[in-house]
Amino acid sequence: MGGVMVYEERNAWAGLILSPISIAVYVVLVLQQAAGGPLTDVDWFPLMLWVIGASIVATIIFSVVWGIIAGAHDPDGVGRSDIRDRDISRMGGRVEQAFLVIAGLGVIALCAVGADVFWIANTMYAGFAVSALVGGIARVVAYRRGLV
């Protein structure tokens, strides 16, 4: 593959760059709010919503700016996609889905043992975060090395 990165690959990279940052921000905010006390006392819901919302907005802005810069270098190829892009997207989605199933099973197990809502919600959040990271890694690897 040449040096030109297609739209879908740029989006995968944007997620890989920004997802770990948003996860780290959320963890730091939760730990700061806990201030050494029990994590279950943290008012996690607004923190989670703000971090998820900010992450979505940041990813969109990052992707748009990157697309504008890419478009300046290759105006004809910036938005093109083909069957390979769709195949890579499907494969990445399957990888993500597998991790969401694992997180869902963890949530069910936590519900079964009567875990605090904090742990249930944060297990699902971690599942979404891990699935996005692993799916993004799978997509980038597929773009760089090809689908097997």
Rank of each mutant, 00 (worst) to 15 (best):
L18T: 09
G114Y: 06
A70F: 03
A34G: 10
G93R: 00
F99Y: 10
A126R: 02
F62D: 04
F118I: 03
T40G: 08
A72S: 14
L133Y: 04
G77D: 05
I52F: 09
I17L: 13
C111N: 14
L29Y: 06
P46A: 12
D85W: 03
W44K: 04
D116P: 09
I60S: 10
A121N: 00
I23A: 13
G104D: 01
L110A: 05
A70Q: 09
G92M: 01
F128I: 01
D116N: 15
S22Y: 12
L18R: 09
V113P: 07
M91Q: 01
A129W: 00
A109F: 13
V28C: 11
G127D: 00
W44F: 13
V113K: 15
R84V: 13
L147E: 06
F128W: 06
L100R: 00
V107D: 01
G79M: 12
G77A: 11
W13N: 05
G135S: 04
R94A: 10
A115F: 12
V28L: 11
A35W: 14
I23L: 10
C111I: 14
W50P: 04
T123E: 04
Y143E: 03
I108A: 06
I23E: 04
Y125N: 11
V4D: 08
L133G: 02
V28P: 11
A112Q: 07
P38F: 13
V25M: 08
I102D: 06
I23Y: 12
G53T: 07
A132Q: 14
M1Y: 13
A12K: 06
V134L: 03
R145M: 13
W50Q: 13
M1N: 06
G67P: 08
L147T: 06
V107Y: 05
M5P: 08
S89T: 10
E9L: 10
R139A: 02
W66M: 07
L31H: 14
S22P: 01
I21S: 04
L39A: 10
D76T: 09
L100S: 00
D82H: 05
V130Y: 00
A115L: 12
L18V: 11
A34R: 06
V101I: 15
S81Q: 11
G136E: 02
A12L: 07
S131T: 00
M1G: 14
V95Y: 01
V57L: 07
S89W: 07
A34S: 07
H73T: 10
D76G: 01
I137S: 01
E8V: 14
G136V: 02
H73I: 10
V6E: 03
M124D: 00
L47A: 09
A115Y: 14
G92N: 00
G36T: 08
F99W: 14
S55I: 03
V65M: 08
P46R: 08
V148F: 13
F62G: 03
V6Y: 09
S81C: 09
A35E: 15
V25L: 11
A24G: 12
V6H: 11
D76F: 08
A72T: 14
L110F: 09
L39V: 14
G15I: 01
L100G: 01
A112L: 15
P38S: 15
I60E: 09
